[in-house]
Structures are given as C-alpha cells and as structure tokens.
C-alpha cells in the first residue's frame, strides 16, 4: 500500500517537472526574440528617428516618420470602416441568432476569418486598385478593415449574447423602445467586451504586411493623401530588412521595436479596460 502511494507520488512529481520544463522550453525562444528586437531596435529610436523620412542610401540618419504617419492613417481609416459595421453586424447576430440570415452571415464571418491575408489583398487589388488606376492608402485600409471585421463582429456578438435577457426586459418594461434598449442598455453593458475586441483587432492588423503589398504599396516620402500610395511600418520593415544596406537594416529594427511596443501597449490597455469597465452583473 505504502509503496504504491510512493510510486504514484513520484509519478506525479515527474509529470509536473516535465510540464514545467516544457513550459520553459517554449517560453525561452519567445523571450529571446523579444529581447533581441528590443536590443536591436531601442538604440535606433530617438526624436530624429520618429520625425524624419528615411535617408537615401549612403547618408546617415533618417527615420520612419512616413511609415509611422502612414500606419496611423491606415489603421484609423480601417477602424472607421470596420468598427461601426462590425458592431452593427455583431448586434444583429446576437439579437437575431435564430434567423436564416444570421446563420449564413455567421458562416461568412467564419470563412472570412480563415481567408489568408494575401488573398484579401489580391481581392482589394482587383476591386479598388485596378479600377482607380493607382495604389492607395484607402485600398490598404479596406483590405485591413476586411481583416478586422470578423474579430469585431464575433467579439461583439459573443459579449452581447452573454448579457442576461432580464436586462432587456427591465428596459422594455419601462416603455423604452427597442432601438434605445440596444443603444442605451445592451451596448453600454457590453462596452468592455466590445472595446477589447476592437483593440485585439487593431493589434491584429497593425502588423499585417501581405494585404498592403499591392494596395497601400509603400512610399519613401511623407504623405497623408489617402488616394496616393502610403508607407506603413510593416511595409517599411519588409522593404528595408531585405535591402543590402546596414543603415536600412537599422531603420527596420527601429520600426520593429515601435510596432512591438505598440502591440504590447495595446494588449496592456485592453487588459486594464476589461478589468476597470467590466460590468458586474
């Protein structure tokens, strides 16, 4: 009896050790990657770096202001397109879950989520870039908005579905019309969940390169015109990291560092928001 207990105990200790060891093995490369990006990038970042366009080959200095501004504009534009449509679709799916339209819409959302980003880029290329005859920030934003949509839709839908019916009934029993119940009660109560979905979707697209390659295309100069080609952080990294020049590699490392910090901050923000604004039901 005693011996068997001992065997079991040993087994459980061995098992635990293996799990801890594996967790380490998996975490270590991640940490190494993070540290490496920080080490390569952090020394590049200063005010000059953030406010100047890349220097031509052979000159020192230069920065990533064009990519930074471009990323901000493109992501803002995609959010403008994807957030309202995504939230509305999410509300529809959670409110009318049993309808045929909701079923097919849900199916489309799932499929959309699985479409490779390069394919989204190609579709937008044929739909917008070719007819307009030029690469543009706008087309890049449309491509990224398509990538954002499924995340915003699903997170809105799932958040709202978790709210109890009693909440809606309380409002309806006070004579509040249906559309106001949705806008004034249901959406505010699901605010934290919807917002964290939005943040996740932004974090997801800010580093997307493939759909921008043949939509926003890139631009070595500072530009804020949404109908013209525009630079973005991931495009800059892609172009400069594959160049043969050391200065350009350094720019790419700096841009990677900025991108990494942005995503990190976004994730921390999301955590804080869900904790602070989570509604106690």
């Amino acid at each position: 009896m005693d011996a068997r207990l001992k065997v079991r105990n040993t087994k459980s200790i061995v098992f635990k050790s293996i799990i801890i060891f594996l967790a380490f093995v998996i975490t270590i490369p991640l940490i190494i990657i993070l540290l490496y990006i920080i080490k390569q990038g952090v020394t590049q970042v200063n005010w000059h770096f953030l406010t100047h366009v890349p220097a031509p080959v052979g000159e020192t200095g230069g920065g990533i202001s064009n990519a930074l501004l471009g990323s901000i504009i493109i992501v803002a534009l995609s959010s403008l397109i994807a957030i309202p449509t995504g939230i509305l679709t999410g509300i529809y799916l959670s409110e009318n879950a049993t309808t045929r339209l909701a079923y097919y819409a849900g199916l489309c959302v799932d499929i959309l989520q699985g479409v490779p980003s390069i394919v989204v880029g190609m579709v937008v290329y044929f739909w917008i870039v070719k007819p307009l005859g030029t690469f543009s920030a706008l087309s890049g934003s449309v491509a990224l908005a398509i990538m954002m949509l499924p995340i915003v839709i699903r997170s809105t839908e799932q958040t709202l579905k978790l709210l109890p019916d009693s909440l809606k009934e309380a409002a309806l029993s006070l004579g509040v019309p249906y559309h106001r119940v949705i806008l004034k009660v249901i959406v505010p109560c699901g605010f934290a969940g919807i917002l964290s979905g939005i943040m996740l979707s932004v974090a997801r697209i800010v580093g997307e390169t493939a759909p921008l390659l043949f939509t926003a295309f890139g631009n070595p100069y500072l530009s804020a015109a949404i109908t013209k080609p525009m630079q973005s952080l991931p495009l800059l990294i892609f172009n400069y990291a594959t160049s043969p020049y050391d200065e350009w590699h350094n720019l790419a490392w700096g841009a990677s560092f900025i991108l990494l910090m942005f995503v990190l901050l976004l994730n921390i923000f999301t955590k804080l928001i869900t904790r602070k604004w989570n509604i106690q039901l």
Binding site: P164, S166, L167, E169, A170, A171, S173, L174, G175, V176, P177, R180, V181, K184, V185, P188, C189, F191, I279, Q280, L281
Partner: peptide, 26 residues
C-alpha cells in the same frame, strides 16, 4: 410597471440613474 423575479437593476447605471431610468432611457 413591472418588477421581476430576479432583481434586475441596470448594471451600467448608478442608483440615482436606475431610479429615473424610465425617463433617461426614453
């Protein structure tokens, strides 16, 4: 008016706003 089986105050509103929810939400 109606009062339900489970208390269902609006979790996003203060006590004050809950009382006048019928006015505010409308």
């Amino acid at each position: 008016g109606m009062v339900f089986q489970r208390p269902n105050p609006f979790p996003n509103l203060s006590i004050y706003d809950n009382v006048v929810a019928g006015y505010k939400l409308n």
